[in-house]
């Protein structure tokens, strides 16, 4: 049994890393918003989904214009990323303005409910745009970077099987890492980042220090949503087929990743995402092996939620977070 698990390990690590980086970047959006407003932005998964659709729409437009062969693919991806990030960034800002800002002093249940509302509306709007344009809401874009690369991991040691990945895996990994490093720089080194951290530490005092709190919150939403949208594009490039409902469960798992790493902590979200992605792929590959066929790969979602529940119960501050005492 152990032997078989080790055999599949390289492939599990590669798939897990792909999924994990996607979770990590989406988790950043959750964690930034939570850090600054103590609000779970339920609509973030839908922003991710919108990004995937915007990216695919651009890709389809390019291919219908016949430009796909004349422009290098990497440029196409960059255009997709930038356009999707900017549009979803504004979408996120708009959501904050409409659905969260008026409720900033309301009981905490209420913004959560508007967030669910927003995510429903976005799902349905995207569905009928997709259905109007294509006749079906499940969209498959033209594929880029489909070349399979084999790594002869069995040559390292005979306990491993060979593994392989699409070239888009490298793209996803590199872009996600660039995004994360850029965000880390933005938050820790720039003026806006400093203001953001100040607001998340203490909103009232930050306002006294002549920080425009509303503006900083808007910027946070813009950056978080833009990251989410860009990840959506990466997801679409990597997996090809998208539908309006991918965002919800993926969003939940990204949230799990944020909690796992310590919510409100940006590096924690990155770590949590990658750990969760690898664990989930490991579970999908080995769960039926481990339990003797009782639990199959279809329990991988259960596995992710179980991690969330366990973390919340035993270590609610997460891996990198600091425990907070409740104020009366």
């Amino acid at each position: 049994m152990l032997h078989e698990m080790i055999q599949s390990l390289p492939q599990v690590l590669i798939d897990g890393l792909t999924l994990g980086t996607v979770y990590a970047v989406v988790a950043l959006g959750y964690t930034m918003v939570y850090g600054i407003l103590q609000l779970i932005n339920f609509a973030h998964g839908e922003i991710f989904m919108s990004g995937a659709f915007i990216g695919t729409a651009i890709l389809i437009a390019f291919s219908s214009m016949g430009l796909l062969h004349s422009i290098p693919s990497i440029l196409v991806v960059i255009i997709m990323l930038v356009v999707a990030a900017v549009l979803t960034g504004f979408l996120g800002m708009g959501i904050e303005r409409v659905a969260y800002r008026p409720l900033r002093n309301a009981p905490r249940l209420i913004p959560l409910i508007t967030a669910i509302g927003i995510s429903f509306v976005l799902q349905d709007v995207v569905r009928f745009i997709a259905e109007l344009a294509k006749g079906n809401y499940i969209i498959t874009g033209p594929s880029l970077f489909t070349k399979q690369i084999h790594i002869p991991t069995s040559s390292i040691s005979s306990v491993f099987h060979d593994s392989s990945f699409k070239t888009s895996f490298l793209l996803v990994l590199i872009i996600a890492i660039i995004l994360m490093i850029a965000l880390d720089f933005f938050v820790n080194k720039t003026k806006y980042g400093t203001a953001m951290r100040a607001v998340s530490l203490d909103r009232d005092t930050a306002a006294l220090m002549s920080i425009n709190v509303n503006k900083i919150i808007s910027v946070t939403f813009f950056v978080g949503s833009a990251l989410g949208g860009a990840t959506g594009v990466l997801f679409a490039v990597q997996y090809g087929t998208i539908d309006p409902y991918i965002g919800f469960i993926l969003g939940l798992k990204a949230f799990t990743a944020a909690v796992l790493g310590g919510i409100g902590n940006i590096r924690g979200a990155m770590l949590g995402g990658i750990i969760l992605g690898i664990l989930e792929m490991f579970a999908a590959a080995n769960l039926s092996l481990l339990t003797g066929g009782v639990l199959g790969a279809e329990y991988k979602d259960v596995f992710a939620f179980a991690i969330l529940i366990l973390v919340l119960i035993f270590k609610p501050e997460g891996l990198l977070g600091k425990p907070v005492a409740e104020k009366v």
């Binding site: 508007t114 429903f120 509306v121």
Partner: peptide
């Protein structure tokens, strides 16, 4: 979904 979402908001 749209109707429910709009109602919630």
């Amino acid at each position: 979904k749209f109707i429910f979402g709009a109602l919630l908001i």
